[in-house]
Design a protein around this nucleic acid. Structure first.
Lengths: 340, 340
DNA sequence: AGTTTTAATTAAAACGTTTAACTAACTATG
DNA sequence: CATAGTTAGTTAAACGTTTTAATTAAAACT
């Protein structure tokens, strides 16, 4: 069988306690003993059993990654990439990530994820908007939590957010720089804090340019951010505003739908209408023309949130840090100077 | 603190062994006792500790999902979706998946993934081609393994494979049906068993149609399947074969590059050249025209391989099952009747 | 030399389960 | 009625660590 701590102890002629201390780099171990034990560990190719460790130390070595099913699947390239980022960083910190997809309609009495109930995670990362109820339920377990791309109102946790305001501002500013004055705005769930901030950025950029904000040019009531809703939003936008020369679509999935609508309507991009998105997903590059958009560092967000939770796990008194990750515009062919 | 099995035992007036037996649905428990224990479990909201279970039963409740870094990132939407499939099915079977990304150049002496060394997985799923060395190393641990989308030569394991031969045949047949006779073939790593099978399907379809196979119309030596290599392959193909009217690109990433080349060369799709891909990734829909391709049920593959490993875990004498998942052509605008 | 400090190591309990072996109380059998 | 068999449940060891308190040995003071 695979060697246990006992085998190492025997081989190094010490007690198992000493072996354990060596493994944890405890200071009060003489250099000679340390050497002897380490040699034994290497020779036997010993690796402590995760379960035994977990039981004795009450640390599972796992981090739960919670995301709702519709977020994960609907905007798949987005949260999967954040997940990948946490995964990368987790490896550095000797953690494993337990991906946990919860239904979007989690209610008060519902069962928490199994990994939480079974004490199989040391901390939790919550990605994207989740029902308040689950957060409230989770805090009762006083298990460290960190958020990414969403932040529950009225709570104080470490969090990684996109600099949405800046993104909205940059996007709009870019269109303004190209001479556009009639800029439509399209979004899914305007209740979502991220979207609200992008909207604020849009408004602020207009204000800075002394252009009056026109609510009639803003479609913000589509159900969720998907291509078909982008299509519909563009249709409604265009039918009521033949004067617009540019559209800022708050996310790329909808932007793709927007492009499709204009194509179907025989309106040329970017000659007749400029379009800019938000997210920078893979599909943008395959579009014709490729979509100009605000690029969000998804992998980095995952890395960053993993670091946050790791900090808390190292020192639970640590205060809740908030990180705003910067976004940047990527110039592609879907925008152009306004025609006169 | 959270309740333990002892608390349940006390509350139900039985020994902890009885509680354990009830949890595992052991037969030799009277209905009354069972009821009493279950009630206590519910009242206390008791959930067995994963670590303790793991230690006592030598089952971690985890499955390792191994994939090489370049596979995972390069063809991201592909293996991530397989991963998602395993994840979905794992939840049904009360397992968690530990995603483990290994370097593509794993060598003989390299360290195995931590989850294996620490006995933190009960079984392993290997997705995509991995170095032989790691497989050889892994078998020494006699831990159940199952493969998906790759199968090591000279081994006998449960495996889920795409019906690549049929896919290659269907794709080619579709082009033949449209009247094409000069059909180019483009692939990345022709050493890869999957690609080889697609190639066989292509050849066989030609043979069935009494069209002589022409190796000059096959580009199979690009380094890896990516857009830029598809672009280059198309360039080389076209420069030497101005007579081709259709291209079967063995995977969508390359197909996108192929389309780009033809566009740049002023050749119209599908009017001048029909293109069909293989995989059916998200980006295909954003292309202009949308890419006709062979659709691979990625999520289902993940589900299927998880079932396989689960079967083995339930009964380790089970013999190695092999599953060929069917593929189907999805008709989109990138192919058309050949011009005369 | 005797006492106190300090450094290094160990003994042993604890963590929360599973499970093989055992027991006590019935039930059936000849 | 003694014996064997069955049923329902219990005892206790085991799983492989961590960690606290205790122990020992050596060094440093009076």
């Amino acid at each position: 069988m695979t060697p246990t701590i006992k085998d190492v102890a025997k081989k190094a002629n010490v007690s198992i306690a000493t072996v354990s201390l060596v493994i944890h780099n405890h200071e009060r171990i003489s250099p000679e003993t340390r050497l002897r034990v380490n040699r034994a560990i290497k020779e036997l190719d010993y690796h402590p059993s995760r379960s035994a460790r977990g039981l004795a130390s009450k640390k599972s070595g796992n981090i739960g990654f919670i995301v709702t099913e519709d977020h994960f699947l609907r905007s798949e390239p987005f949260y999967t990439r954040i997940f990948l980022g946490t995964e990368f960083e987790a490896r550095q910190n000797e953690y494993y990530i337990l991906l946990t997809i919860i239904p979007a309609d989690f209610k008060k009495g519902d069962k928490l994820p199994r990994c939480v109930l079974e004490h199989n995670v040391d901390g939790i990362i919550i990605a994207g908007k989740v029902p308040e109820d689950i957060i409230n339920h989770l805090v009762e377990y006083d298990i460290p939590m960190a958020f990414v791309d969403y932040y529950p109102p009225s709570e104080n946790f470490p969090v990684v957010l996109i600099d949405n305001f800046s993104g909205g501002h940059q996007a709009t500013q870019h269109l303004l720089n190209l001479g556009h004055k009639n800029i439509g705005f399209i979004a899914g769930d305007i209740q979502h804090p991220s979207i609200r901030d992008r909207f604020q950025g849009y408004k602020m950029a207009l204000e800075d340019a002394n252009i009056e904000f026109d609510a009639g040019k803003c479609i913000t009531d589509e159900d969720y951010p998907a291509r078909e809703n982008g299509y519909n939003a563009a249709k409604r936008l265009w039918e009521n505003n033949k004067d617009i020369t540019a559209v800022f679509s708050c996310n790329d999935a909808m932007a793709i739908g927007v492009m499709q609508y204009f194509k179907d309507a025989g309106i040329k991009i970017p000659e007749d209408v400029s379009i800019i998105g938000f997210d920078d997903v893979e599909a943008d590059l395959s579009l014709d023309p490729p979509l100009c958009t605000i690029s969000v560092p998804k992998i980095e967000m995952g890395i960053e949130v993993m670091r946050l939770i790791n900090d808390v796990l190292k020192d639970r008194t640590k205060s809740a840090k908030k990180v705003l990750v910067p976004v940047e515009i990527v110039h592609r062919k879907s925008t152009a100077q306004v025609k006169h």
